[in-house]
Simulated assay, not measured.
Amino acid sequence: MINSDRTKQLKKLETFLGIKFKNIALLSQALTHSSYYYENNLEDICHNERMEFLGDAVLKILITNYLYDTYPDKNEGELSKLQAMLISDSLLAKKARDIELSKYMLFGLNEHKNGGADVSSNLSDALEALLAACYLDQGLNAAKKVLHDLYRSIFDKTENIDYLIDYKSKLQEYTQNLGIELPEYTVIDESGPGHDKLYTISATIIPDTGAISLIGTGKSKKIAEQNAAREVFNQLELF
């Protein structure tokens, strides 16, 4: 049974999500980590691992349907790449952090002490389980509403999801697969005051077809390197 304090806590999340559960136990289960379940030897409350499995499927069908309807001119490969970004653990964890989902989650003491409330996999799993709970309680449209609210900035194209791609790592993998030297990054320019620097950095690779060197800019060297690697990637039409 769910006690009154837990129910009161979950009611706040219901209000935030804009959905009233018929069976609030489903919502509680979606936010119960396995460590809490096993540590407390629970019998009447289960953890969220099975719901995560279902939620993964719910997420995929909703995202796939959205992409199919929204981008009629994109081919299968392009749609698959967008899908991979939109269902990625990194994006799910970010969205879970945006709504402070960990505040409503139950963890075992050791998991909590070890920072489990901010582990990306725990957060992404819980968000998938949350979608499953919505689906089980009220059907696919309820899960769709919650997902679209969470992804609104992306679906409205006001949030760039390009940051989810680690272009530096992908470019390094590309050069390793070709058996050529790893990418070289060179600072071309630094401008602006110390608190507001703008870096210009080049990324260079030397495949058999000849050297490719393109530049990227950013507020930090890391961002500038990522942007430079992205430019090389785009020229090679690798993504």
Rank of each mutant, 00 (worst) to 15 (best):
A93G: 12
I61P: 09
D89F: 07
L147M: 06
D56E: 14
K222T: 11
K103W: 00
E100Q: 08
I154T: 01
P72K: 00
D156S: 01
Y167M: 05
L131D: 01
H148C: 08
K95W: 08
T204Y: 02
E76R: 08
F21V: 10
I87S: 05
H148P: 03
T7L: 15
K94D: 12
M105W: 08
S88R: 02
A224N: 13
L17W: 05
Q176Y: 14
T158F: 03
R6L: 08
T64Y: 01
L54S: 15
I206Q: 07
C46F: 07
T32Q: 04
L140V: 13
Y66T: 01
N48R: 07
K170I: 11
K221C: 06
A211W: 13
S202Y: 06
L127H: 05
T64Q: 03
M105F: 09
S35M: 02
Y163C: 06
K221D: 07
I45K: 14
A132L: 10
K103P: 00
Y185P: 08
I223C: 11
D5C: 01
P183G: 09
I161Q: 01
E49V: 07
N177D: 09
D56N: 15
L130I: 07
I215H: 12
A30W: 12
A203G: 04
N23E: 13
G116F: 01
N48Q: 05
D69T: 11
S124P: 00
G216D: 12
F53D: 15
E184C: 05
N23R: 14
I87R: 03
Q9C: 04
N122M: 01
K170E: 10
N48M: 03
I45Q: 14
I24P: 03
D44H: 09
I24A: 07
D56R: 15
H195F: 11
A133Q: 08
L59A: 06
I206A: 03
S28D: 14
L82P: 05
P183L: 03
Y135A: 12
M85T: 04
L62C: 10
A228Y: 11
S220T: 15
S220D: 12
E14C: 00
L130V: 07
L59C: 03
L67Q: 02
I201L: 10
I223L: 15
V232C: 12
N110I: 06
H47Y: 06
A211T: 15
L214C: 11
M105L: 09
I205F: 06
K81Y: 15
G210A: 13
K8L: 13
E128Y: 02
P193V: 06
L182D: 08
A84N: 15
L86K: 00
A96Q: 05
E231P: 11
A142G: 04
N41Q: 14
I2T: 03
A203I: 04
Q176P: 09
L10F: 02
T200S: 07
L13G: 05
A30H: 10
Y68I: 09
A229P: 07
L198C: 13
A57N: 14
A133M: 02
Y71Q: 02
C46Y: 11
L123C: 00
D189W: 00
M105E: 04
I2D: 06
K94Q: 14
S202K: 12
K144I: 10
T158R: 06
